[in-house]
């Protein structure tokens, strides 16, 4: 991963006529060579942000640099591959001809068409008209078009949409390979497991604003659950021992494990207490959110903030999250 930024958004706002603010003072930076998961609920502003990165939509205010240049310039577009929202191609042309058309616009030789068709495993149906394609095939063609220019930066909006499980797996492998080859990837997806497996970092936006940013571990860990999981024997003695500690708020046994409601910083203290009491401790770890739980909590907190008239709510209610490179 490089030290330079492939994408820089500074204080970017996009307001549409009619007063809808799709993106609201967004700050986001993506390092070169990084695979960034871009998460957010429907209508959060992900697609508008991606459209702004390729110049399809202009920001109302703020500054955007993509590969060091303003978006939408020929030299910038030559190095960016994008699949934004649903794939859009000429229905009467075959998949191959659609790619040849894109290649002509890009100044890319026709040989690149065969390369990307192979890469997305669409060669067999490449001569069928696009209108006969299934949703998954359309999606593959969209990804193929994005790869056509061998871009430094790939912007992919829901690339696995409509793919069968095998296709999702192949796409995941492709994204991993692209990341290893040094491509910068901005990936929007609702499949959190996919994001977790593929992305170096994740940015979460809601209502057009950046809610959280960090590695998947940071996001999960930042939202502390306040629960420790302890596997200890004998269980009854362990429960009694833990309940005697004045900072332990609750202890319950679930499936042979103890769920201890306490500050995770107490882990070492509780471990020593149990061992000193002659109790065997096999495992002690903080209970962590899944990425899905973290995502839901982060976006729910944002909505709660938005609904609240109290300007201090944002500072007090929202979980504190590590902010990766922007810190």
């Amino acid at each position: 991963m490089g030290d330079r930024f492939a994408i820089e958004l500074h204080d970017v706002t996009k307001r549409y006529p009619g007063g809808v603010t799709a993106v609201d003072r967004l700050d986001l930076r993506v390092r070169e060579g990084e695979v960034l998961g871009f998460l957010g609920p429907n209508g959060a502003g992900k697609t508008t942000t991606m459209r702004m990165l390729v110049g399809l939509v202009r920001p109302s205010s703020g500054r955007i640099r993509v590969l060091g240049q303003p978006p939408g310039t020929p030299s910038q577009l030559a190095r960016v591959g994008a699949l934004i929202e649903s794939p859009a191609f000429y229905p009467h042309l075959s998949g191959r001809d659609n790619l040849r058309l894109a290649a002509r616009y890009s100044g890319v030789p026709d040989s690149a068409v065969e390369r990307v068709l192979t890469e997305v495993r669409l060669s067999d149906r490449a001569d069928s008209p696009y209108r006969t394609y299934s949703l998954g095939m359309k999606q593959r063609l969209g990804v193929a078009a994005a790869l056509l220019k061998e871009p430094s930066l790939l912007i992919l909006d829901e690339p696995t949409n409509g793919l069968d499980p095998a296709g999702v797996s192949e796409m995941r492998e492709l994204l991993r390979a692209l990341g290893k080859r040094g491509h910068t990837v901005l990936l929007s997806s609702h499949v959190l497991a996919e994001v977790e497996q593929v992305c170096d970092r994740i940015a979460v936006i809601d209502a057009g604003r950046l809610v959280a940013e960090g590695t998947p571990d940071e996001l999960r860990g930042a939202l502390g659950t306040g629960v420790l999981l302890i596997d200890a024997e004998p269980v009854d003695q362990a429960i009694a021992c833990l309940r005697e500690h004045d900072q332990v708020r609750a202890v319950e046994a679930v499936d042979g494990q103890l769920r201890v409601t306490a500050d995770p910083a107490l882990a070492a203290v509780l471990n020593r207490r149990l061992v000193t009491a002659g109790i065997d401790v096999r495992e002690l770890r903080p209970l962590r959110h899944s990425l899905e739980e973290a995502f839901l909590e982060l976006t729910a907190a944002e909505r709660s903030d938005a609904d609240s008239a109290d300007p201090t709510a944002e500072a007090t209610d929202r979980p504190e999250v590590t902010t990766g490179v922007n810190a």
Binding site: L56, L77, E85, Y90, A102, Y105, S106, K149
Partner: peptide, 18 residues
Amino acid sequence: RWGTLNLIFTQRPRRGQV
């Protein structure tokens, strides 16, 4: 109608050239 401006405006040429 087909949304293909998304495709051709994100290739290389300026919109005016397209």
